[in-house]
Computed example of a mutant assay.
Amino acid sequence: MRHTLMRMTLRQLQVFNAVCDCLSYSRAAEEMALTQPAVSLQIRQIEELIGQPLFEYVGKKLYLTEAAEALKRASTDIFQRLESLDMQLSDLQGKLQGQLNLTIESSAKYFVPHLFAAFRRTHPEVSLHLVVVNHAQAVKRLTASRDDLFIMSMVPPNLALDFLPFLNNPIVAVAAPDHPLCEKQALNLQELTAFPLLVREVGSGTRKACEEYCHQKRAHFSQWVEISSTEAQCEGVIAGLGLALLPRHAVRLELAAGLLHELPVQELPLYRSWCVVHAQGKRLSPVAQAFLEFIRQQHAQINDLAEQFLHRDALKPLPTGL
């Protein structure tokens, strides 16, 4: 190994990572509470140590060189190992401590905070870094192994993954309370196709699941309205723009308040399982391993928690402890 690499400091790597993430010296300086000349100096010092440039400008945009890409991968591994070491040292002291880096699909964002809160009651010194993305973005982050664990439905079959299904994600049809379909006691999916359907953006797991299911059932909607967030979909349905197929977890408060009506469609709910996922062979941190074991061992209690979550009043807290 080059002796010059041994002179590189963790602080220099932190500054380097900030520039990689921000793709801007000035924004990295703000993030690190440094001056821009100080950031530039740290980058020049690293370049001298490795003997290659790290960044280049094309027009006004900053790009990583191949050397920078290699250094980014190495620095990510270094900081992950240091974080894992910190957790292991805490474990030796008889306590679990550290941060869980969790990426979830947006349909899971309503329930997962309550799931983590139940886990944290057992491990109060664990913190959470939560990233909410759509299905396509989750798959991209998964292939880059950027996080400890992922929670998603429709696990990609073409990737080498370990996954644990742990909770049903029921998708239901909803309408505004004054919609003409609300007067019917029973419906089939085909009857919904006469009305506009509000859908998420391409890349959404819920949209993909609904498209595949409707195609399977030969229910073809002629009018689609694309809306890029579940909250905006709810508002669109309330406003009378059309119908929507949404996770019941996502609309529980609107249903309870009478702002939305769940249509009695014979072919629904459409059930998809939420799964906790990680790459095969990935070395999990003690915190990630503990969270995975919590989900594995508390399966029945998690289902009970989900039922309480679905039927609770908006102002009532969830019960303490699983």
Results as ranks from 00 to 15, higher is better:
137 Q>G: 07
56 E>V: 11
81 R>G: 11
23 L>I: 06
50 I>T: 09
97 Q>K: 10
72 K>I: 03
236 G>E: 00
300 A>M: 10
264 P>C: 15
321 G>A: 10
237 V>C: 04
233 Q>D: 02
83 E>V: 05
182 C>D: 04
133 V>G: 01
164 L>C: 02
211 E>W: 09
184 K>V: 06
153 S>P: 02
38 A>K: 09
157 P>W: 13
247 P>C: 14
203 G>W: 01
322 L>G: 07
98 G>K: 04
193 T>C: 10
75 S>W: 08
268 L>V: 02
266 Q>I: 07
257 A>W: 13
153 S>F: 10
190 Q>L: 12
133 V>H: 06
38 A>W: 06
114 H>V: 08
180 P>Y: 03
117 A>I: 02
321 G>M: 04
40 S>T: 07
313 D>Y: 11
42 Q>N: 12
281 G>A: 00
284 L>T: 08
142 L>S: 09
250 A>G: 08
315 L>D: 15
52 Q>C: 08
63 Y>I: 04
77 D>F: 12
258 G>Y: 12
124 P>Q: 01
159 L>S: 14
68 A>H: 03
228 S>M: 10
188 N>W: 06
242 G>A: 04
272 R>C: 11
9 T>G: 04
108 A>W: 08
210 C>K: 00
21 D>F: 10
320 T>A: 12
321 G>T: 00
205 G>K: 01
258 G>K: 11
220 H>Y: 12
111 F>C: 02
285 S>C: 04
80 Q>K: 09
320 T>F: 13
227 I>E: 11
254 E>G: 06
55 F>S: 04
138 A>N: 03
106 S>N: 10
201 E>K: 12
197 L>A: 10
166 F>G: 01
23 L>T: 05
316 K>P: 00
120 R>Y: 11
291 F>N: 01
176 A>M: 11
158 N>Q: 15
87 M>P: 05
291 F>A: 02
36 Q>Y: 02
14 Q>G: 09
196 P>R: 01
122 T>N: 12
228 S>C: 13
161 L>F: 10
133 V>C: 13
254 E>C: 07
284 L>W: 05
210 C>N: 07
46 I>Q: 05
111 F>G: 02
